[in-house]
Amino acid sequence: MPPLLRRILVLLVSLFAIVTFNFFLFHVIPGDPIRLIARTQKLAPDQVEKLRQSFGLDGSLIEQYFRYLSNLLHGDLGYSFSLKEPVSDVIGRALLNTLILLTVSTIIVVVVGIMIGVFAGSRHGKKADSATVVTSLIFWSLPTFWVGMLLVFTFGVWIGGLPISGITTPNAVYHSGIDYVMDVARHLILPTITLAIVDIAFFIIITRTSLVDVMGEDYMLTARGKGLTRRTMVWKHGFRNALLPVLTASVLYISALVAGAIQVEVVFSWPGMGLLTYNSVLARDYPVLEACFLVTAIVVLAANFGADLVYRRLDPRVAVNT
């Protein structure tokens, strides 16, 4: 079987597993979800009926499962009683905002993380290397949400100057599209820094360790023997190989990034999936919570699939042999 086809098959199986897992998590384990909701919400009888429908609770478990699958395929994620609109609409907006945040910070994290990681790794055993490692370990140990709180305090209370909440300035009037983009960009600064501070540290450590391993390989001695400059040695021969373990670790990174994004969105009220998750926890809005989990898991699955494809492009051994 061609490798790509096999990867897609694995992706589909994982997708199916996630969907089924989600069904058990929210529809089977809690028993009657309505009871769960009624614990914290005062519901009118018609609301209860609506909920029952949206959860698809009539019929046997198998029937419920297939109805759940068919609803998913039609993009029907249920109805949010706290926001009074279909969950799919809510998720659509939030997902876009989260993807903006994740894309911008991933680019920064990858670029800065790799540069510093290569800087440290190519100076293995020297002061600059150990200083980078210790600093990275400290940043890695920071709780993301706390970094966010510190930045809110610094820029919202103490120094001021940068927006600390939301994605746009409330009641702002925009004269052009550029105005709007600039406003969003300003709101992006602190959330991105928060997310990047912790995750860059993670990236630095992985890149650096991987490069240190690679620098000890025989082909690096060959590169040196060829009379290459240090820069060519490190980037053309070292980095290309060091990137492979970094990509293998991307599963961990993607998971960390999603966890970080949830915290950052809560602290900075960034209207994305994380804030939605948080609000649905507070409101005990289970249909929204369920959809948040499902959509996040699928996005993570897709991201891992992408990382795997890149890996396969970069490592000729895998590309040919599987």
Binding site: S255, A259, I262, T277, L289, F293, N304
Partner: peptide
């Protein structure tokens, strides 16, 4: 591998909420 790929924090939130 399944649990390695499933994002941990959202799952923890879901479980704790349930």
């Amino acid at each position: 591998d399944f649990f390695l790929v499933v994002p941990a924090l959202p799952l923890m939130i879901a479980l704790a909420a349930i």
